[in-house]
């Protein structure tokens, strides 16, 4: 029957349409053509970023794509390669909300202007911390002349890198300038370039991309994948501990600062892209037991190396190298291992 054949064809057509739709869905929400924007110099772009006002109420999705190649650290799964997303809300007046969803739960941090609430759905705990109003004072840089500050910052960078505005891009659906920092050939570094996408209208950074030598894919990319400006629901910036949750007060001083005082001040060798930081670990008996929270066990990482400077373990990642010596020194930098050993030998 003719009609039956027509309908059979229509059925196949529907199936093909479904397959095509599947292909369209799978296509990465792509970079379209680069938007046309008036040209701007690197100095002007940096100055406008420093000068830019608070962008006001916004809601965005921040995606972190991590290909740093960090070794798997027990207890810190977030450091491993992969991508993660977070949602941010801001009311433009100091209140904010951050939520970090995982497949099994969510961490939410709400700043309602007077108190910061941190909620963890895994153990249903709420940690609250009163914040003073003084935490919102703008950094000093805005107090000085932004144009001069920008010019100086760019000038400082140009001692070791080339700073250019390299075309435009669309980030989170918004046209943006691409500010690109490349190390000068004299720099001995693992990094190839660092790109910052700056929103053309609001002049806020939208995306940071770190590219390493020997790979065309970014080693690290963090930025907005979706961004909306406009008034946000005030209910987002309030938090009431839900029934059944445990509320604790945050410790008055974060533990990290204490540890910093115990260790010696780290020394810095070199400047620019091949800066090496050498720090001294606190003696073994003062270190917290490995495996406890905040102190991952590092003793099994890396490969053993030795030289005139001593011996230790070398940890390689896509963008940085670190050497932990057996006598308790740590040297790290975005440099090949040879630069580290030279710095250690000094």
């Amino acid at each position: 029957m003719a009609t039956r054949r027509v309908w059979a064809r229509a059925g196949m057509g529907l199936a093909v349409a479904g397959a095509v739709g599947l292909g369209l869905l799978a296509m990465p929400a792509g970079a379209g053509a680069a938007p046309e924007l008036p040209p701007v110099s690197a100095e002007d772009l940096v100055a406008s970023v420093i000068q830019s006002k608070d962008p006001g109420p916004l809601h965005g999705t921040v995606t972190l794509d991590n290909q740093l190649g960090l070794p798997a650290i027990p207890g810190v799964p977030q450091a491993a390669n992969g991508s993660s997303t977070a949602q941010v809300w801001s009311d433009g007046a100091g209140k904010g909300r951050l939520s970090i969803p995982s497949s099994q739960g969510e961490k939410t941090i709400v700043d309602d202007g007077t108190t910061v609430w941190a909620w963890d759905s895994a153990d249903r705990t709420v940690t609250k911390k009163a914040v003073g109003t003084d935490t919102h004072t703008p950094p000093e840089a805005t107090a000085t002349d932004p144009a001069a500050a920008a010019a100086k910052a760019v000038q400082d960078l140009r001692a070791t890198s080339s700073v250019d505005v390299d075309g435009t891009a669309t980030v989170a659906g918004r046209p943006a300038y691409e500010l690109v920092l490349r190390p000068l050939p004299s720099e001995r570094t693992l990094l190839r370039e660092v790109r910052v996408a700056v929103d053309s209208e609001k002049r806020i950074p939208l995306q940071l991309t770190v590219l390493a030598n020997g790979s065309s894919d970014p080693a690290l990319q963090v930025g907005f994948t979706q961004l909306d400006f406009g008034a946000q629901d005030p209910a987002l910036f309030a938090f009431t501990p839900p029934p059944g949750s445990t509320v604790t007060d945050a410790p008055a001083r974060p533990g990290g600062a204490q540890q910093h005082e115990q260790g010696q001040e780290p020394t810095v060798v070199g400047d620019g892209w091949d800066t090496v930081v050498i720090a001294t670990l606190p003696p073994a008996d003062q270190q917290p037991a490995p495996g406890r929270d905040g102190a991952p066990d590092l003793s099994s990482l890396g490969k053993p190396v030795s030289g005139a400077w001593g011996s230790g373990r070398e940890i390689d990642t896509a963008v940085a190298t670190a050497i932990i010596t057996d006598d308790g020194r740590v040297a790290a930098g975005a440099v090949p291992a040879q630069v580290l050993t030279e710095a250690l030998a000094k």
Partner: peptide, 29 residues
Amino acid sequence: SWGDIGGSTLRALCYIAIGGGITTSRMLT
């Protein structure tokens, strides 16, 4: 967050189109 729910629903609709189309075509012929 509607992103994943919407995305997976669209994907399901594509599968429904594929499956339904093939079923119709096969049953009619």
